[in-house]
Structures are given as structure tokens and as C-alpha cells.
């Protein structure tokens, strides 16, 4: 569906995107992940035809971006970061205008606007001025804008940045609903975000791709130090330290501040072999301790990211 070859973009002498190669098949939700200034937005802008690459080629559905920009733009719906919409226009008027520019005729236009109003939950705000909307609502209007022409590819630049948790879930649901039959590329710098919404994650740093794969494979690929939280009742630290610390794979056991509730809260630093949690459980089962909490700390993007860039 999308084929990117040696894509490079220079801003003056600064190289924002450095020889990126990427192939995205139809129907996949791809997350572009990276810290600020990694080149996510620049890459997306080139994919949508807003910026012209310094060198390299982009082919979308077999169409080259240099030769047939208009045809590509018809296939792609794009929502830039923080949805920079016009301010002094009503939501309905705006969607109507976009529908016209997207070339929908009168009959289809009304139907399409109705569909998008339902999908994006805009029914209560059609008569409002876009400038008066909250950030989350503006983002939804932006999504409706991007989906207006029923594009085959949807490109979203940080669709959930600056939204509250409820709005994030709503936007994610819209993306999921749309992504069933369409190809979606979205950028984000929040790992949990990418994990929740994407089939595949591409991590870029300093304009280069440093990792590419599904969420699981990325996590396993960097499988070293993990942190496990364990809260026990009816146990004392020394005994627990001795028993758990002896397990293969546990490098260190640390006691966390315990309120006087009789709970023993431990932090286990672990690495290496798999199935460690099973063995921890089996080990605790043999004692008369009571396990009240047992979680593995989700690894942060920063962690994965640091590891990846260290390796690169």
C-alpha cells in the first residue's frame, strides 16, 4: 500500500529524516514512535505531500508522489498535530466545505457528513464555531475532516496529544473502528498509546528507523531488566529476601516503605530467563505468605528507547 524508499529530508543543513525505508501493507495500523524532534512529523508531512522530500521515493498504491500528487492526496486523509482548523467557521460549514473540495456531490455530501457526525460524535456541536470548541472536540472535527473523502489511508499526527483520558479512549475507539478496513499511520510519543492502538510499531530517532515490529516483539527483543512489584502479608523482609533473592533471574530484592499495616511491599529487579513470574508464584505458594499484589511494571518508552539507541 505504502512504499517508502530512502526517504530523506534536509532543512538547510539539518537532516530531519535520514534514508528511511518502510513498507506498509493494506489494513495495518502503524504507530510511528519517537521522542520530540525525531522526524515523525516530517515523515508524515512528506507522506501526505505537504513537504517535498530532498531525496528518496514514496509510492502510494503504485502512484508516485512526485508525478501524481493530486491522485495521492485523494487517497490520503491527514490530521496534522493539534488539528489546526479554521477558527471563524461553523462545524457544519467547515465539513460542508471540505466535502465540496474533496469532490463529493450534493447527494453523497449530506450522507457522508451524517455518517461522520455519528462516527466522531459531533451531533451536539454542528452549529458551533470551531474557535469555541475544546481541544478534544476540535480533534474530533479534525478526524472528521481527515475521513471526509473516505480515504484508503489515514495519517494522524499525534491524534491524542493534549487530551484527557476519556477523550483519548474515545479517539482511540474511532481510530479502531476506522482501522478495520483502512490503512492507518499515526505518530505518538507515548508507548502505551501505540500499544493500545497499533498493530505495528516503528521507532525512529534522529531521522532513522531504530526498531520496527509488533509491540510484543519489541518488548521481547529488548528483554532484559524488568521490575516486579510484590506485596505480601504475613511475611518478614529477611525471609522473603532470602527465598526470592535465591531464584534464578532475580538480581535484587528491595523493600519499599511499608505503612504499619502488616504488608510487606517488595520490588524485585529481574532479568534473563522467561517464566520468572510463574516461579515466583510457585515459590510464594510453598510458604504461608499471602500474596495481595503481584504486578510487572510496564516498561516505559524511555527505557526501550534508551536501549535501542544505545545498541544502534
Amino acid at each position: 500500500m505504502i512504499h517508502v524508499e530512502k526517504l530523506t529530508k534536509f532543512y538547510g543543513s539539518f537532516c530531519a529524516v535520514d534514508q528511511i525505508d518502510l513498507d506498509i501493507p493494506k489494513g495495518e495500523i502503524t504507530g510511528l514512535l519517537g521522542p520530540n524532534g525525531a522526524g515523525k512529523t516530517t515523515s508524515l508531512r512528506m507522506l501526505t505531500g505537504y513537504l517535498v522530500p530532498t531525496s528518496g521515493a514514496i509510492r502510494i498504491k503504485g502512484l508516485s508522489l512526485d508525478e501524481d500528487v493530486l491522485a495521492v492526496k485523494r487517497l490520503v486523509g491527514y490530521l496534522p498535530e493539534s488539528a489546526p482548523l479554521y477558527h471563524n467557521i461553523l462545524v457544519y460549514d467547515y465539513l460542508d466545505y471540505i466535502a465540496q473540495v474533496r469532490g463529493l456531490d450534493r447527494r453523497h455530501k449530506i450522507g457522508r457528513i451524517h455518517e461522520l457526525v455519528d462516527l466522531c460524535g459531533l451531533s451536539g456541536i454542528m452549529h458551533k464555531n470551531i474557535g469555541e470548541l475544546s481541544k478534544g472536540l476540535r480533534q474530533r472535527v479534525g478526524l472528521a475532516h481527515a475521513m471526509m473523502g473516505d480515504p484508503e489511508i489515514l495519517v494522524l499526527d499525534e491524534p491524542t496529544s493534549g487530551l484527557d483520558p476519556n477523550q483519548i479512549v474515545e479517539i482511540r475507539d474511532i481510530i479502531r473502528a476506522f482501522g478495520k478496513e483502512k490503512t492507518i499511520i499515526l505518530s505518538t510519543h507515548i508507548l502505551s498509546e501505540a500499544e493500545a492502538a497499533c498493530d505495528r510499531i516503528v521507532i525512529i530517532d534522529k531521522g532513522r528507523i531504530v526498531a520496527d515490529g509488533s509491540t510484543e516483539s519489541l518488548k521481547q527483543g529488548t528483554g532484559e531488566e524488568r521490575t516486579i512489584h510484590l506485596t505480601l502479608l504475613n511475611a518478614d523482609f529477611d525471609a522473603a529476601n532470602q527465598t526470592l533473592g535465591a531464584l534464578d533471574g532475580v538480581s535484587r530484592v528491595e523493600r519499599m516503605d511499608t505503612p504499619d499495616s502488616g504488608e510487606l511491599r517488595l520490588k524485585l529487579f529481574a532479568g534473563g530467563p522467561d517464566r520468572l513470574r510463574e516461579r515466583i508464584y510457585a515459590c510464594v505458594k510453598q510458604t504461608d505468605w499471602i500474596m495481595v499484589e503481584f504486578t510487572q511494571e510496564a516498561k516505559s518508552l524511555e527505557k526501550i528507547f534508551r536501549d535501542l539507541t544505545r545498541e544502534a
Partner: peptide
């Protein structure tokens, strides 16, 4: 200034 230029330019218009 507002950035809506980016949305305008990614519509299928010359």
C-alpha cells in the same frame, strides 16, 4: 500562522 495551511495543502487541490 494557525497551521491550517497544512490542512489546506493536503486536500486534493493544486
Amino acid at each position: 500562522h494557525s497551521g491550517s495551511y497544512e490542512m489546506l495543502l493536503t486536500l486534493p487541490v493544486k
